[in-house]
Amino acid sequence: MSFSAMLMLVVTTILANNVVLSQFLGICSFLGVSQKTETASGMGGALTFVLTLASFVCGVLYHLVLVPFHLEYLRTIVFILIVAALVQFVEMFLKKYMRSLYEALGIYLPLITTNCAVLGVALLNVQKDYDIFIGTVYGLATAIGYWVAIVIMAYLREKMADNEIPRPFRGFPIVMVTAALMSIAFFGFAGIK
């Protein structure tokens, strides 16, 4: 894959094919952890870290272990176990060696195990036949797209907190309406070819 094609892939993954707003992966944490800009940003950072690492490790294991032994059918089980183990491992590693980073990301790490974006990217890499390097870049771009979306959403929610919202729309529904409008805006990027 040439450099320009790679750049194109990164840009479209972040904007036009945004993981949350057009592929609906990672919705739970997108709605749950977007009340404040700082926590949203923390979640985005933690996810970027884990997602990049997970797409790399899953790619390595798939191409170097599962494919040579014809065990491709085990990929769902293997990938989810890798993600769960990786999250535990990253948590332990950060706790021991990078205390400040652990304190910043700590509470978000366990949430990432059930974030479908991580498993989704690992499976999409297989479906789209990406090799290890492109798969990792795709993982990083996806995570940045998630980060951008959740920070914008958190910023909008902070602004909205002071507004008078009709009672039935308070909480979950108004966030979904906001996400719909954001999604329309991100759709605009798909027009740029």
């Binding site: 039935p168 729309f169 909480g171 979950f172 979904m176 719909a180 999604s183 329309i184 759709f187």
Partner: peptide, 25 residues
């Protein structure tokens, strides 16, 4: 056609949950 695209999904679900909230209230 926007209803079968991504924004429509968010919008329709938002309306359903709002109706549920209204009934609960």
């Amino acid at each position: 056609s926007i209803f079968v695209l991504a924004p429509g999904a968010f919008l329709v679900l938002a309306m359903f949950v709002a109706v549920m909230n209204r009934l609960k209230i």
